[in-house]
Design a protein around this nucleic acid. Structure first.
Lengths: 142, 142
DNA sequence: AAGGGCGGTCTATTTATGAGACCATATCTC
DNA sequence: GAGATATGGTCTCATAAATAGACCGCCCTT
């Protein structure tokens, strides 16, 4: 499994094969690396936060302003998880009032190209997607 | 925005800039291409289903077996959304009992490299992530 | 006649997310 | 010195999303 690389002509198929190996005990499913990480990706703010930290480290309230419609609660929770996963670091400065700076770790930064690829795809194809939705909805009504 | 390409030396920053353009009216946030697509990505089964369809078209119950712990309800719902978005096609064969085949469209297939990159990253780095989690949890208790 | 596979829908429960009040501290404004 | 502002959170309560699993009609096999 760990010999997969971006240059692989068909990495997706190889990963599928790898995932199949976790078909055994139901309890093991959670241990499957792909599922494990995809669960994180499947949390609403994870990717957005990583992207927001790309240009430079940011403070809690800076992040909240930048993501505009995230609640403090979710921001706290998401940052804690990212910190636990080792993708983001948290540093407290003893100013008055104290300020807290969040930054990408090397591990976190290593995820950006893959995330970026997804964003580029989103950007390139969202017109087609919106058109498809409109067509689908038009048929529904008919 | 649509001039972003995978070869761009720093596509992520460019996208950030693009996202900033959607900072205006709160209602417009939902129209931001990145947020729009990321919402879909942030649904638990979307990526997994796309990956599962990569090798070949599959029927409903084949998919359910392959994804093992998805409920029929979520599988139905996720497939409908993917169909609406134009990433997956649905074809009914008038056999007895009728069989329904789901397949990737060209648009759906075009998303796979980006998703693949994410899976490869997950596969390469999940050991580091698990280690980080263990370390974090150990400190918590202490 | 009973059981199974097919592609779903429906209800009820659990989990995730969101809105917003609250806190202690300190600073700036009037 | 009263009031507003900012810091990084936590807490509670409501809503939205995901899950488990019963149920359905249809047909085939046993």
């Amino acid at each position: 499994m760990t010999r997969l690389h971006a240059g692989n002509p068909d990495p997706v198929r190889a990963i599928l094969d790898g995932m199949a190996a976790w078909a055994g005990a139901p309890a093991d499913e959670a241990q499957c690396p792909v599922r494990d990480v995809l669960d994180r990706v499947g949390q609403k703010w994870t990717l957005l936060i990583l992207v927001a930290l790309e240009p430079a480290p940011r403070r809690f309230s800076q992040l909240q302003r930048q993501l505009r419609d995230i609640s403090k609660r979710m921001l706290t929770q998401s940052l804690r998880q990212l910190e636990r996963d080792g993708l983001v670091s948290r540093q407290v400065f003893p100013t008055k009032p104290p300020s807290v700076e969040y930054a990408l770790t090397d591990l976190g930064r290593s995820a950006l190209p893959a995330i970026g690829a997804l964003l580029v795809w989103a950007d390139d194809n969202h017109e087609a997607i919106r058109a498809s939705r409109a067509a689908f909805d038009a048929e529904e009504v008919a």
